[in-house]
Design a protein around this nucleic acid. Structure first.
Length: 261
DNA sequence: ATGCCGTACCGTGTACGA
């Protein structure tokens, strides 16, 4: 089974491209972030025609997450308990379902924006609350098959950014953010892609501006963290940077993992 | 080559991304 995660930066602007990639890349389950549309606006037909079921949440042009699957979608969960709010609203940043026997989460971690920005504490609260649940899931069932897939908006190590100097006074590489990410690794979840895509200089995101992609100036911020039992089944993984190329590309590349029996 | 920002909004500018 092949599972992927992709921040598509508007599913309406890229539905055809995403469906084409799903079929070409032979992907069974895709966790999507930044759909940037309401539930009703989601272009479901193209996915259905290709044999994929869709579950999504979204309220407006901001955020929005989805899961598409051709191996079934069961036990849908939208958000997580006590999910921190922004302006009294639970944003569309987390959705989950069981697909092919795996509990798949599509996560769009809040952008901290700046080190002293209120969004940063929101981001850290959000990750901390999720981490508490993620730990409990493993405590309840050490053999749980879980993948925490999505745009984490954190570059965990210095090898994961093109310039530590550039980001020194910005979001994404600060100690609190990295600690929040490491908390998931400490809980037992594994970055199963890294062994198959060693760095430095291996990224999943490149800004649209400043020729960042051709200059190979990116960040590795999209991850598929697997529970211990699922991590054991991972037989391969890759970042499909070909999908960052050309007109109409998202600023993120899809990240793919292969799960054996 | 991968190429000089993109997307959504009642919108001719503003917010957001990271």
């Amino acid at each position: 089974m092949r599972i992927a995660t992709w921040n598509v930066n508007s599913i309406r602007a890229r539905a055809e491209r995403v469906v084409d990639w799903l079929e070409r890349a032979d992907v069974d389950v895709l966790a999507i972030q930044e759909t940037k549309c309401s539930v009703d606006q989601f272009p479901e037909m193209g996915f259905a025609a290709a044999g994929y079921d869709v579950e999504r949440i979204g309220y407006n042009q901001w955020n929005g997450v989805a899961i598409v699957s051709r191996v079934g979608i069961e036990d849908l969960q939208t958000g997580f308990p006590d999910q921190p709010r922004w302006n009294d609203a639970v944003e569309a940043r987390a959705i989950s379902a069981i697909c092919g026997g795996v509990r798949v989460w599509s996560l769009y971690v809040p952008n901290g924006r700046g080190l002293d920005d209120p969004h940063m504490s929101y981001k850290l609260d959000w990750l901390g609350t999720l981490n508490g649940h993620a730990r409990q899931w493993l405590a309840d069932d050490p053999s749980a098959q879980i993948v925490l897939a999505g745009d984490w908006n954190i570059a965990p190590t210095d090898d994961d950014v093109w310039s530590v100097d550039y980001y020194a006074d910005k979001s994404h590489i600060s100690a609190p953010e990295r600690a929040a990410f490491t908390d998931f690794l400490d809980a037992g979840y594994a970055d199963v892609v890294r062994p198959h895509a060693p760095g430095p200089g291996v990224y999943t995101y490149w800004d649209y501006t400043q020729l960042r992609f051709p200059r190979k100036e990116g960040m590795r911020i999209d991850f598929t963290l697997c529970s211990p039992a699922l991590a054991e089944r991972v037989s391969g993984a890759h970042i499909d940077r070909e999908e960052r190329k050309g007109k109409g590309a998202s600023d993120h590349a899809p990240v793919v993992i292969d799960i054996g029996p």
